[in-house]
Design a protein around this nucleic acid. Structure first.
Length: 546
RNA sequence: GCGCCUGUAGCUCAAUUGGAUAGAGCACUUGCCUACGGAGCAAGUUGUUGCAGGUUCGAUUCCUGCCAGGCGCACCA
C-alpha cells in the first residue's frame, strides 16, 4: 500500500513535470527521493533543482509552479486523503507530508503481510552467485574470514529478500603450493615426534593444529598416507564446523582441482587462443590483459608448464556464467585489490560483461579488548580466529559487530563491548527491544485481531515517529542492494529500537481504554516484525526473553 | 617510483551516492523507577570535514595539486 501510494505520487509528479517543461529537460531528471529525514517531509524531490540547472531558471520559482499543478492533480485523485501538505523548502525542494491515513494503512499492511510488506522484487529472479570466505584449507578461519562470512551471508539474505535467486559458494583451493606446504609441515612435525632431527622451513605452517595432526598420525600410524590430502581434509572439517557454528551455510563447495581435471581450464585457454588473447613469451604463456585495462599482461602458464593462480580463476568465472549466474559477487580481502583488474580483464577477454562481476573488498577488523588492540604473533602461526571470537562473545554479537561498519571500512571490534549487556552494546540494545515487546505482548494475553484495530487512535508524536521509521525499512534494503552492502541494516535497527524505547518510556500500552491498547499493541507487533526481519537478515537471533 | 583506499567532534563511525542547520554512539555533567522488563528514557557540551585551489544554485561527496597514514605492485596463492 505504502509503495503503491508513493508510485502513484511519482506518476502525478512526472505528469505535472511533463506539462510544465514540455520536453525541455530529460526524463531521468524526474526523480523522487525516498523518505529520509522527517524534518523535511516524508518524501521529497529535487526535481525543481535539477530542472533549474537545465533551464537556467530560479529553482524555487520552478518548484512553485510545479507544486501548483501537482496539487491540482492530487486534489482530483483519491491520493488527496493521504497527502497532508506539500511545501517548497530549502533551495527549492518539494517536500510531501503524509496525512494520518497513510500511516494507518502502512501499519495495517505490516500487520497483515508481515515481512512481505517490505519486499520489493528488485532482483526479478536474477541468478546471483556470492563467492566468499574461500580460505585456503591450511588453518582455522581468522577474523578476516569471519567478517567476510558475516558480510557475505547477510548480503545473500538481503538480496534473496529483494528478489534475487542467490547461491553461496566457497571456492576451495584444494591443490597447489600452499596445500603441499601444509602436508609437508605435518610430515616434518611427525618426524620430529618420532625422534628425528628436522629442519623446519620458515615458510611452513607453525600453528598448534599442525602438532595436533602430527600427534594423531603418530597414534594412528601414517603408512602410505598422502600428507597434503590428509591434512587439508582435516582442516576443511574444522572450517566447515566453524562456519556451521557461525550460522553460515554454503550451497556449493567448488573445487579448484576439478577445473583442471575436467579440462575446463584447457577449454577456456582454447577459446582465448582463438580470440588471440594468449601468447607465448620467455617460455611462458601470457594473457593479453592490457587489452582490457590491466597495467601489464599476466602469466597464466609458467615456463615450467604449471598454471598460475589466474589460470583456474579464468575457467572458474567462465563456469559461473555457464551455470546461469549473471550477477557474480566476490568478497575478497584487501590484499587482493591488485587482482581485480586482471580478473575483470580475463572475464571480458572471454566475451562476458565485466559489469556482471562485482568485487567487494572486505576490510580487516582489528580486535580490541578494553580499547587496546589484542596482540598477535604471526611468527608462531598464531592469529585471532573465528573460533576464539565465537567462543568469547557468541554468534549474535559476533555477526552484528562484523556488520556494523561499511564493508569497505576498517572495523574496530572490542570484545569487552560485545559481551556487555547494556545500551553500550548495540546488538543487546536491539535484541532487548524485541524481547521487551514480546514480554508486553505476552502480558496482553488475548489480543484479538490486531489488524482490525483503529489505527487512527495513534496520534502521539512518539507513535507516529515509530511508524515512520518502520516505513523506511524498504528504502534501507534498497540502499543495501544498490551498494551491495548490508551494514546499513545494523544502523537502521538501532534507530527502530531507539524509537520504540522512547515510545515505551513515555506511553503505556496495557490498561488504557481498550481501543487504544489494541492500537498500541498493533504498533508494537509491527515494530517487532521489523526488528525480527532485520535481525534475521543479519543472521542474528530475535530472543523473546533475555 | 607507480597504482588503489582512507583522512569528519577527545575516541569509534554516519551523512540517503551532488542537497537543506555535517549527525549518532562512547566518554563527561545532570535529571527520571508505587504501573507493561531501568538490560530503559531525557537534557547539556563537543567541528576551519587534513591543507590549498577549481567545477555550480549548492561540495564531506566530483576535479587538480600538496600533506599524512594504510595496502598493493610475482612465472606466490
Amino acid at each position: 500500500m505504502k509503495r503503491h501510494i508513493q508510485d502513484r505520487l511519482l506518476e502525478l509528479l512526472a505528469a505535472a513535470a511533463r506539462d510544465a517543461f514540455a520536453g525541455q529537460i530529460p526524463e531521468e531528471a524526474l526523480r523522487v527521493d525516498l523518505p529520509t529525514d522527517v524534518r523535511f517531509g516524508d518524501v521529497t524531490t529535487n526535481i525543481a533543482l535539477q530542472a533549474s540547472r537545465v533551464l537556467k531558471a530560479n529553482p524555487r520559482q520552478i518548484a512553485q509552479e510545479l507544486s501548483v499543478s501537482l496539487r491540482k492533480r492530487i486534489d482530483e485523485s483519491d491520493l488527496k486523503r493521504y497527502i497532508q501538505d506539500i511545501k517548497i523548502e530549502g533551495a527549492g525542494f518539494i517536500n510531501f507530508y503524509f496525512a494520518r491515513p497513510y500511516f494507518q494503512e502502512l501499519l495495517k499492511e505490516i500487520l497483515i503481510d508481515k515481512e512481505e510488506a517490505f519486499k520489493v522484487d528488485f532482483g526479478r529472479g536474477e541468478k546471483a552467485l556470492i563467492e566468499f570466505v574461500s580460505a585456503n584449507p591450511t588453518g582455522p578461519l581468522s577474523v578476516a574470514h569471519a567478517r567476510q562470512a558475516a558480510v557475505g551471508d547477510a548480503l545473500a539474505k538481503v538480496l534473496d529478500f529483494m528478489g534475487f535467486a542467490v547461491s553461496r559458494e566457497y571456492y576451495l583451493n584444494d591443490e597447489g603450493n600452499q596445500i603441499n606446504i601444509l602436508g609437508n609441515s605435518v610430515r616434518l612435525r611427525l618426524q620430529e615426534l618420532l625422534g628425528e632431527t628436522v629442519v623446519f622451513p620458515e615458510d611452513h605452517y607453525q600453528g598448534d593444529y599442525i602438532y595436533d595432526m602430527a600427534r594423531t598420525l603418530k597414534e594412528k600410524g601414517a603408512q602410505g598416507i598422502d600428507f597434503a590430502e590428509y591434512s587439508s581434509a582435516y582442516i576443511l572439517d574444522i572450517i566447515r564446523k566453524e562456519l556451521d557454528d557461525f550460522g553460515v551455510a554454503f550451497d556449493y563447495w567448488y573445487s579448484q582441482k576439478s577445473l583442471r581435471t575436467s579440462g575446463k581450464i584447457q577449454q577456456a585457454f582454447d577459446l582465448l587462443t582463438e580470440k588471440g588473447f594468449l601468447y607465448p613469451q620467455d617460455g611462458a604463456t601470457w594473457l593479453k590483459s592490457t587489452a582490457f585495462g590491466d597495467d601489464k599482461d599476466r602469466v597464466v602458464i609458467k615456463s615450467d608448464g604449471s598454471y598460475t593462480y589466474l589460470a583456474p580463476d579464468i575457467a572458474y568465472h567462465r563456469d559461473k556464467f555457464a551455470r546461469g549466474f549473471s550477477l557474480l559477487i566476490n568478497l575478497w580481502g584487501p590484499d587482493h585489490h591488485g587482482y581485480i583488474n586482471r580478473l575483470k580483464a580475463a572475464v571480458e577477454a572471454q566475451g562476458f560483461d565485466p559489469k556482471g562481476v562485482q568485487i567487494l573488498i572486505v576490510q580487516l577488523a582489528t580486535i580490541f579488548r578494553d580499547g587496546k588492540p589484542v596482540q598477535m604473533s604471526t611468527r608462531r602461526g598464531q592469529y585471532i580466529t573465528l573460533r576464539e571470537v565465537l567462543d568469547e562473545v557468541g554468534k549474535d554479537a559476533a555477526r552484528f559487530f562484523f556488520l556494523m561498519r561499511r564493508t569497505s571500512s576498517h572495523l574496530d571490534f572490542d570484545l569487552e563491548v560485545a559481551k556487555r549487556r547494556n545500551s553500550e552494546n548495540p546488538v543487546y540494545y536491539v535484541q532487548y527491544a524485541h524481547a521487551r515487546i514480546s514480554s508486553i505482548l505476552r502480558s496482553a494475553q488475548s489480543s484479538g485481531n490486531l489488524a482490525e484495530c483503529d489505527a487512527a487512535l495513534l496520534r502521539e508524536p512518539e507513535e507516529i515517529e515509530l511508524i515512520k521509521k518502520l516505513g523506511q525499512f524498504t528504502y534501507v534494503l534498497q540502499v543495501c542492494v544498490h551498494t551491495l552492502d548490508p551494514y546499513m541494516v545494523t544502523v537502521y535497527l538501532q534507530e527502530v529500537a531507539e524509537r520504540f524505547h522512547r515510545f515505551y518510556d513515555r506511553h503505556r500500552v496495557l490498561g488504557q481504554e481498550s481501543g487504544l491498547t489494541l492500537a498500541r499493541l498493533a504498533l508494537l507487533e509491527a515494530a517487532q516484525t521489523v526488528l525480527r526481519t532485520g535481525l534475521g537478515l543479519l543472521g542474528v537471533s530475535s530472543p523473546d526473553k533475555m
